[in-house]
Design a protein around this nucleic acid. Sequence first.
DNA 1: TTGACATACCTATAGGCTTGAGGTATACTC
DNA 2: GAGTATACCTCAAGCCTATAGGTATGTCAA
Lengths: 114, 114
Amino acid sequence: MSNIRTTNQNFVNGVPELLILKLLDEKELYGFELVKTIKRVSEGYFTFGEGCIYPILHTLERKRLLSSRLETVNGRVRHYYHATPAGHRRLKELKHEWSRTSASIANILGAEFA
Amino acid sequence: MSNIRTTNQNFVNGVPELLILKLLDEKELYGFELVKTIKRVSEGYFTFGEGCIYPILHTLERKRLLSSRLETVNGRVRHYYHATPAGHRRLKELKHEWSRTSASIANILGAEFA
DNA sequence: TTGACATACCTATAGGCTTGAGGTATACTC
DNA sequence: GAGTATACCTCAAGCCTATAGGTATGTCAA
């Protein structure tokens, strides 16, 4: 309500999880790369920091919606994540939920009730 | 993420404020009526309880985005709320924000990045 | 006349999610 | 040797919604 946020604004609740599952359902990415990818594919509109993304990755892995593997590149360790079949199903659910929510709001905003 | 909610689900952050401003920009409503109206116009999809709506009404009034008047009907007091010009402007902002967010998500969900 | 239910207002606690600010460590470049 | 980019991580604070209460009046049926 009182917006002290300087990066993202309203309506982003749940969006990080949706985007993470969407991107990792298609392609394996590591955390740092994912943070940048979300910014890039949204053309700078969504800026979810590492403090937002990393904990979600850990939670989703714990819930077996993501699987991960380690790879060392140039002396630095990368955690690559990928959606599991359960993660794929969860993505479908979230997309459906998003689509219903989005349609409801569009419907209300486009109508006159006076 | 871990959804313990039984009524609304994800993606509703900021939606109550948006809908309140939208409805009260068109027509004067009292709190209790507003709660039912949101449920009705969303065809039961959004169910924001009084514990969610009343505090937002108070905050928006304090910020001069809503004005109110009292009316006693059948011995019961009603607080009628209506959007002020500032509330109208805020609604325009939120609609724009919603539309940008919605478009960004639709764009990402509809594309392939693999 | 009592009890149940709807109306109409309100508050408070708890919980989830994002933000923002940190911290650690390696590699590369100037 | 300092600065910047990479790559991981955690934590406190803040915001918002959900849920569960509480108060009080009016109506209607038993």
